[in-house]
């Protein structure tokens, strides 16, 4: 049986983003999931989620980010946990992607990309357990 690494814990530092993206690619491949395009899309979404945690959840420190992946049928699930400040990505307003250059705001695109590339996004916060973001991507739709 192929060696499956479906759990990752990293410190919330931006230089760990490549490790997160490699982990996602390896997890999807070991579960037999995804074309290069789908792997890229999940990598973008998870990269954006982790970037948010790294920038905002643990101000001044680098707490842990814990990622667990699983697969069932055509469903690839990623759960990202941290114990930093609460932050619901679903609460961020959508950027106007049709605005002309002079009115185009710099920012808000990370969450937008996450929503574009992931089919189901769920967020919970618990004072003890911290933030939990669940992402589901339907593969081969």
């Amino acid at each position: 049986m192929e060696d499956q690494k479906l759990h990752l814990e990293v410190a919330s530092k931006l230089e760990n983003l490549p490790e997160v993206r490699d982990f996602i690619a390896d997890a999807m491949k070991s579960l037999g999931f995804g074309s290069e395009k789908e792997i890229f899309e999940v990598q973008v979404a998870v990269d954006e989620a982790c970037t948010n945690i790294m920038k905002h959840a643990y101000p001044g420190t680098a707490g842990p980010i814990i990622i667990d992946c699983s697969g069932s049928g055509n469903e690839f699930k990623i759960i990202i946990r941290d114990k930093g400040k609460s932050f619901d990505p679903k609460s961020v307003p959508e950027p106007d992607t049709k605005a002309p250059l002079e009115k185009r705001k710099i920012g808000g695109l990370g969450i937008f990309l996450m929503k574009a590339y992931i089919d189901k996004l769920d967020y919970t916060f618990d004072a003890d357990a911290g933030n939990e973001l669940t992402m589901i991507k339907y593969i081969g739709k």
Binding site: R21, F40, Q43, V44, D47, E48, T51, R104, I106, G107, L109, G110, F112, L113
Partner: peptide
């Protein structure tokens, strides 16, 4: 071969 929103922001600026 990879760009996230942080890269988009820099290009837009």
């Amino acid at each position: 071969d990879f760009i996230s929103s942080a890269g988009l922001r820099v290009l837009l600026a």
